[in-house]
Nucleic acid binder design. Structure first.
Lengths: 194, 194
DNA sequence: CTTCCATACGAACGGCCGTTAGCAAATATA
DNA sequence: TATATTTGCTAACGGCCGTTCGTATGGAAG
């Protein structure tokens, strides 16, 4: 589904707020309609199904993450630097798109089966990027050998958890968070014989 | 609600499996009844509401976590050792109760309001235990000064994510996972001037 | 001026939801 | 054997769900 009219974008934004705070499955089309001062049926002048809304959110974020990863891969070479940039990009996207991020991390499971398959493919592609950096670091004797899959998932879980506690008005900036987490993670990965 | 009859326990077990794989909200009483070869109404001879089942699961796990934390606090003194034992206990409980853990981590939000409040209190108590260890480590100059709240939540997210990928038949034992995660986390926390 | 498209409506569809009332059989307890 | 408790049933309740049909309006594009 393309978001090609102003009204469509308004519908999407209202849905985004509701999905974030109530979850996709617990948000009804009737609630969404009320939020927009519309009748339920009118929503279907703009979208063809509720799941359209979830799709736009999930794939929109997936694209952003993959684009950022691609840029990092094109510019940086050394494993530590690359991982730091991956983390900075990840935290920046999460904190700048809190609503979408929360929905996309929590509710992708409710995508229709075929879309869910596509989505998981994209997510695996992103995870592979991190896995490869760790592998490079290990083979270049910069990182300690470790279970690579576990390291990747542990790193991602630390990063993604940020949406659960980050407050834009809080004391830590996204840059500081990214930096702290990078230090934390790299201390966990790096050889200690410097 | 007490689980005081055999049949009640069977109902609870069936619910647990369904909740784990479909989520609490997406599991209907009719599905649960079918799983037990019962009519829907018969379920209400054993429980008084669907939310009873979620309560038993969530508070059952909360109790286990807090009990483990209490034991660790009673035995160990030094901050690093204590944190290692906290982590070992946490991973052991998660991997030995995969179904309950997944439900309890994901679906506690759907507890009725009053029970949810109680639950969050218990969770905060558990988080405080970890926070205190980190504070002790910092004040004893064993750990680097850092944002303590962030460190606590980052550690918990790394630990809890384990339920997303742990496979009992996989190559890593819970002990190995706890050990690897402890090293990873402690490297991130410890002063490097040894 | 007409055609087209975005936008919105009321009414209804079949279906699933958690829960209750009232009753019956089985099983354990005394 | 009499009594109490556990376990189960049929039928129904009001309510919410996503979606569809047919229709109407208003403004932009040709």
């Amino acid at each position: 589904m393309e978001v090609n009219t102003k009204r469509k974008k308004e519908v999407l934004n209202a849905a985004l707020t509701l999905f974030r705070h109530r979850g996709y499955e617990s948000t009804s089309m009737r609630q969404l309609a009320k939020e927009l001062n519309l009748e339920v049926a009118s929503l279907y002048s703009h979208i063809s199904a509720k799941s359209d809304l979830l799709e736009v959110i999930c794939f929109g974020m997936a694209d952003k993450f993959l684009l950022g990863a691609k840029e990092v891969n094109d510019i940086y070479f050394n494993a530590e630097e690359k991982l730091r940039m991956y983390i900075a990009n990840h935290i920046s996207l999460l904190t700048q798109n809190m609503d979408s991020s929360i929905v996309f991390l929590r509710d992708w499971r409710f995508l229709p089966d075929d879309k869910k398959e596509q989505f998981v493919e994209l997510r695996n592609k992103y995870e592979d990027g991190i896995r490869e950096i760790i592998e490079t670091g290990i083979s270049e004797h910069v990182f300690n050998p470790s279970d690579i899959k576990m390291a990747t998932l542990t790193i991602l879980s630390s990063l993604n958890w940020v949406v659960e506690w980050y407050k834009p008005e809080g004391s830590l900036t996204p840059q500081e968070i990214a930096n702290d987490l990078s230090n934390f993670i790299l201390n966990g990965l790096k050889k200690n014989n410097l």
